[in-house]
């Protein structure tokens, strides 16, 4: 995504956020547009955020949740998507466990397709809302900021979307986590530095973005125990003290308190975790507005 597009989305979200503070949280902009959320992975947060964004803009939203276990046996994604389109959907918002599924969907459908997270690939609206949140706390700019991303970078689409967006906007990204969860090629992306020690990534950071730890990674043998992870890689008060005094702490949620982040940090004044959720709605309103209007969506 070009920088100019990202800026347009961020600016639009800035304008639309005001609607969320109104008594009547509704504008008529997307009247008569129908949006379907198609989720092959459970996610209350992202799906609700998209649905509320649609409703605030007067679009009609419906949701389809498909149990992943039945995917292979059941109707193919292609047929499901074609069915939804035939019902008149103007936009399909999809979450899927397979990387690249949204590219596949976009090849099949004529209507707009929004990626709400595909496998380990990308979660663009999360990346944008994180950038939006950082902008709002750091005087409107991202350039030159030191952003630490801590945790399971290897399997994290949130990390990837953050890294692409932030580095393009001129931020310095520092990643750290267990060596088994940091892809060695990550440093080939200009603007990204990998560290063995969490402390080195956090030192002097303007922003610390803590990734959610998927517990099944431990069963796959990528690190020994949750206890060890929390001790060596968890973000706690002592480690956070290495960052700048006005550091902003983010987490995409849902949190494992006491694992990747301590409650002390999550509940501190530095944390903006709930604000990220609010901003998520504004970002998604911006995406819907920019994608769904126009003679040719």
């Amino acid at each position: 995504m070009p920088v100019s597009d990202m800026q347009l989305i961020l600016e639009t979200a800035g304008s639309l956020k005001e609607i969320l503070t109104r008594e009547i949280k509704k504008v008529p902009t997307l009247r008569g547009k129908s949006i379907v959320t198609l989720f092959y992975e459970p996610s209350t947060r992202t799906r609700t955020s998209f649905e509320m964004a649609g409703k605030y803009m007067s679009a009609d939203t419906s949701s389809i949740t498909v149990a992943t276990s039945s995917v292979v046996k059941g109707e193919s994604l292609k047929d499901t998507a074609l069915t939804i389109q035939a019902m008149g959907a103007d936009m399909v918002i999809m979450r899927h466990s397979v990387s690249g599924s949204c590219h596949f969907l976009a090849r099949i459908l004529d209507c707009s397709v929004v990626n709400a997270g595909d496998g380990m690939h990308e979660h663009p609206s999360q990346g944008l809302l994180d950038m939006f949140t950082i902008q709002q706390h750091k005087g409107g700019h991202l350039e030159g900021l030191k952003v630490a991303i801590i945790g399971d970078v290897q399997h994290s689409r949130v990390a990837r979307s953050n890294i692409w967006g932030l580095t393009k906007m001129g931020a310095d990204v520092h990643v750290a986590g267990p060596a088994t969860l940091i892809p060695p090629e990550i440093e080939q992306i200009p603007g990204v530095t990998a560290h063995d020690r969490v402390e080195d990534a956090i030192r002097g950071a303007d922003v610390v973005n803590v990734l959610r730890l998927q517990r099944e990674r431990q069963q796959k043998g990528l690190f020994p125990t949750i206890r060890e992870y929390s001790r060596i890689y968890g973000v706690n008060r002592e480690r956070l003290a290495l960052a700048k005094d006005d550091v902003t702490v983010m987490h995409p949620g849902p949190m494992n308190r006491g694992v990747e982040i301590t409650s002390e940090v999550a509940d501190s004044d530095h944390a903006v975790i709930e604000e990220q959720v609010t901003n998520g709605v504004a970002i998604r309103m911006a995406l819907l507005y920019l994608l769904l209007g126009g003679a040719e969506a």
């Binding site: 990387s99 595909d118 496998g119 380990m120 690939h121 990308e122 990837r160 090629e185």
Partner: peptide, 15 residues
């Protein structure tokens, strides 16, 4: 695994 492990698998998020 879905593709060669390297830079592009990291970018694409494919195992």
């Amino acid at each position: 695994g879905q593709m060669h492990e390297g830079y592009w698998s990291m970018v694409l998020g494919l195992r």
